[in-house]
């Protein structure tokens, strides 16, 4: 049974990738299971400077999901390139996806260039959709013009495939996707989290200190699937489908909708073995559905 996929020339031993922000820098998981069974790893979002992120509490329980308002906590691009990447490459041979965020075009340029130059990095994933920081991320992901601008910058400074990670918090995701494709994006990742809120009704205040946060988890799967399908029907570039994926069946569904690879996010937080379980279950599910090569189902619906 063939489960290998190809993302812009980068071969993944299977389509399963833990999503950025739900797997740290990979190193945090090294004693949990052998990372080499993963198709790829999308690392924690990185900015030019080190960031603490938002104040706590920054997690809230939701029906079939959760809200996070971490706000891009990371050690900065230098530590990422000089320490995190080499340490991960020592224990992991699969695809490494660097997830880059920023607060200005200059910051995106500098961070994309440094990440792309790192020999360990196989794919650049440019996050223009983080809902948890003001003046950064999402500000670039909600306008087709700004999204195209960041895409051009990343494409200019990177010799590696550039994926743009899209926000669902827009009126027309297809318009943004097309703008990124036209600006030279090699691929797209979608979706990032949906802006959400919970209120502590006893204390009469928002549960997360930052008031709003990104909603993810199983509940968002139908929305993610719909958006992946819309973009797949409008664009030619390969997609990494993301949002609420929790089972091997979800992976098949996401690929039928148009994804070439599938990211698993919040599910990693409730089940540390989620990706391993999904990868182990995938051949059985394929065999039950009469799928011999996983590539045959990409975008068939």
């Amino acid at each position: 049974m063939a489960i290998e996929v190809n993302l812009c020339g980068v071969r993944l031993r299977n389509p399963i990738i833990p999503a950025s922000g739900t797997f740290g820098f990979g190193l945090e998981m090294k004693d949990v299971y052998d990372l080499n069974l993963l198709g790829g790893i999308s690392l924690k979002g990185t900015t030019r400077e080190a960031r603490f992120g938002n104040e706590c509490p920054r997690i809230a329980e939701c029906p079939d999901g959760m809200i996070n308002s971490v706000g891009l906590q990371n050690p900065g691009i230098e530590v990422f390139v000089n320490e995190k990447l080499p340490a991960l490459r020592k224990i992991y041979s699969g695809a490494i996806i660097a997830n880059i965020s920023g607060f200005s075009e200059d910051e995106y340029r500098e961070c994309c260039e440094k990440a792309a130059q790192a020999p360990e990095v196989d794919i650049l994933e440019v996050n223009i959709s983080c809902p948890n920081v003001h003046g950064g991320g999402l500000a670039f992901g909600t306008s087709a013009k700004a999204a195209a601008g960041i895409t051009r910058i990343a494409r200019e400074v990177s010799s590696k495939p550039v994926f743009i990670k899209l926000s669902p918090n827009v009126t027309d995701i297809v318009e943004i996707a097309r703008a990124c494709e036209d600006a030279g994006a090699d691929g797209l990742t979608l979706i990032n989290t949906l802006l959400g809120m919970r209120i502590d009704i006893v204390r009469r205040r928002p549960v997360v200190a930052n008031r709003y946060g990104g909603f993810s988890g199983r509940a968002v799967f139908p929305i993610a699937l719909r958006m992946v399908n819309q973009v797949a029907r409008a664009c030619k570039v390969p997609l990494m489908g993301c949002g609420g994926v929790a089972t091997a069946e979800d992976v098949v569904e996401m690929m039928m909708a148009g994804a070439t690879a599938v990211q698993v996010g919040a599910e990693n937080l409730r089940d540390p073995y989620a990706c391993k379980r999904i990868i182990e279950d995938l051949p059985g599910v394929m065999s039950r559905l009469g799928i011999k090569d996983i590539n045959e189902i990409i975008g068939i619906v």
Partner: peptide, 15 residues
Amino acid sequence: ERMGCGFGICYGCSC
């Protein structure tokens, strides 16, 4: 602190 994962991958509970 309110935690996401409890085992160090989500950075939800930093101090």
